[in-house]
Design a binder for these strands. Sequence first.
DNA 1: CAGATTTCTTGAAACGATTTACAGCGAATG
DNA 2: CATTCGCTGTAAATCGTTTCAAGAAATCTG
Lengths: 343, 343
Amino acid sequence: MSASRAATIEDVARQAGVSRAAVSKVIRNAYGVSPAMRERVNAAIEALDYRPRVAARAMRGSSFTLGIELPSIGNPFFTKIIAGATAALQGSPYQLIIAPADMDGEEGVRALGALADRQVDGIIAISPKVRPDWLERLAGRVPVVMIGRHDRPVAYDTVTDDDVLGTRLAMEHLFDLGHRRIAHLTRDEEVTLPGSGTPHAIRLEQYRALMEGAGLAEHIRVVRTGLTEESARLDTHALLDEDMPTAIFAGNDELAFGAQRALGERGLGPAEVSLVGYDDVDIASHPAISLTTVHQSGEALGERAIRLLLERIDGRSEPVNFTVVPSLEVRASTAPAPAEPTS
Amino acid sequence: MSASRAATIEDVARQAGVSRAAVSKVIRNAYGVSPAMRERVNAAIEALDYRPRVAARAMRGSSFTLGIELPSIGNPFFTKIIAGATAALQGSPYQLIIAPADMDGEEGVRALGALADRQVDGIIAISPKVRPDWLERLAGRVPVVMIGRHDRPVAYDTVTDDDVLGTRLAMEHLFDLGHRRIAHLTRDEEVTLPGSGTPHAIRLEQYRALMEGAGLAEHIRVVRTGLTEESARLDTHALLDEDMPTAIFAGNDELAFGAQRALGERGLGPAEVSLVGYDDVDIASHPAISLTTVHQSGEALGERAIRLLLERIDGRSEPVNFTVVPSLEVRASTAPAPAEPTS
DNA sequence: CAGATTTCTTGAAACGATTTACAGCGAATG
DNA sequence: CATTCGCTGTAAATCGTTTCAAGAAATCTG
């Protein structure tokens, strides 16, 4: 009726003829309210279409909000993480909000800061560029779960894919097919700093180690690119201009698609250059794309991250590191290596 | 130093030797503060690493937060909208947060409610199932911009694609190629209610109108499916089992990819069945996919939505409807219709 | 039935900012 | 010289909720 202002707890209390505190108790169904009172209060809430203001609640208690910080929403793998997270939150009183941080780097800490300023009850971080010590400090104020980074944190939890295993699966598949000149397409230096523990850093390290282990050190070829499909396409063209590997191991599916575009534009198919991705994004299984890739379950990552976050909110303080096990999806983008030109 | 608690405005005031109100003025750079004081206060803020609590600000003023409600994050077209929105917000004091609403319907209003409860300063809504009258009521409390729906709102703004034109472009392209038996793959009844003004409803209406206009009423064939690629794949198989159109016009690219999968699985290519999508998602231009589709700029939609929202926050009250103009991207998934079998 | 518990309910004090009203104080004006 | 004015800064009220301490009523003990 009163289009003037939304109802407050005060209005509800007046309508029900009780005190504000009593209404508050009913809402949070705390101890010490009689069925009769609960009944009356609920009727008043219904009648006035009352909804508690989250901002006001946040000032004393909690905001019932969980935040997830996300670099480049464009990446469909991240949206799978979100899907897993929202699913895990079904029926809980918490609402998930996403703070997009496009073009990660400084943007990542900005978005995380924005979430912290909004008094969320817990934070899931994905940006690989955010420094561990920064996260530790953040984790001192609010529960934090980091996805993807292989840290040894003390104040927050991590949920990761076993990138060492995943890389091994991909590389051994290529070795088995007879490939020797295998290039690795990865992101810029900043996200692949040795020892930083980012997924791309580990995949790169492992690529190097496995190549060396196979006696192929001389064929190690690392191509740096940005985070978009388009930049991967361009840098793959550059690679092909000066060198011709028989296989490319891409740091993730986005990059693989870019490489696949470049190969397609040159009329090169799996018979000439094999291609392996990482993530197993939905479209990778499309028959026209059919990308061989390392499967990791984004849903499981997201779901687990939420689980750990809720545990932390509940009081746990020892850090937990959870790992999901990847598997290889062999599709049509990989084929036996072409015969070496006899030199 | 004091790892105990984050600094409050009180602490800053004490440190700078001024009143809380003065600090507040500096932060919002309001009228009436001397350069000397601004200097001192800023130093104190710096020293204490002070950050205003958004919840507290929201109680009296604004939360400097804009919310966008999003059904099915899986759809890459929506992520383009987000990209456009975040770009438009660069440098503004506002932070964008996304409330995912998976499996839209009731979920959509739940997510919108959650945003409203969080006192966001403005809301962008995408779920097509949310009723206009519900939005009008919401818009009475907080500025709202609806993306995609062709309503005639009084209290909120809309940003839409010209779906009438887009559908005409797609269908005329197919007519020009000689197609007559054109099926339309669209979503469930609930999102295509005649007169509801959702994009899918308009595309469906136009499909019917254009088929009739071309004297092809007898060949109208509407296939209903869910919102995922997988459901589109299955329903396309069902369609092909009982009927064999020479072309399929899909309601959006996700559905088109599902149809493309089904066609691929049966060894059918553009020579047998042409396929047109809608949205022009990034992957549609991948050479292996090469989907003919109606291009609409998600970035422009997102950017415009933000623009309108900021105007409303600034005080505008007459509703504005903004439309972006689609174009047709002709690729390899469409080809001349095969010769009719002479009956 | 008096006293001790338990159960229900309430008023008032936070929480951390913004906003409003106004006080102090030189300078300008008549 | 007294009044007015413009500029800085402050005190206090306010926003809507939770929580704490304590009062009132009901129930249980012995």
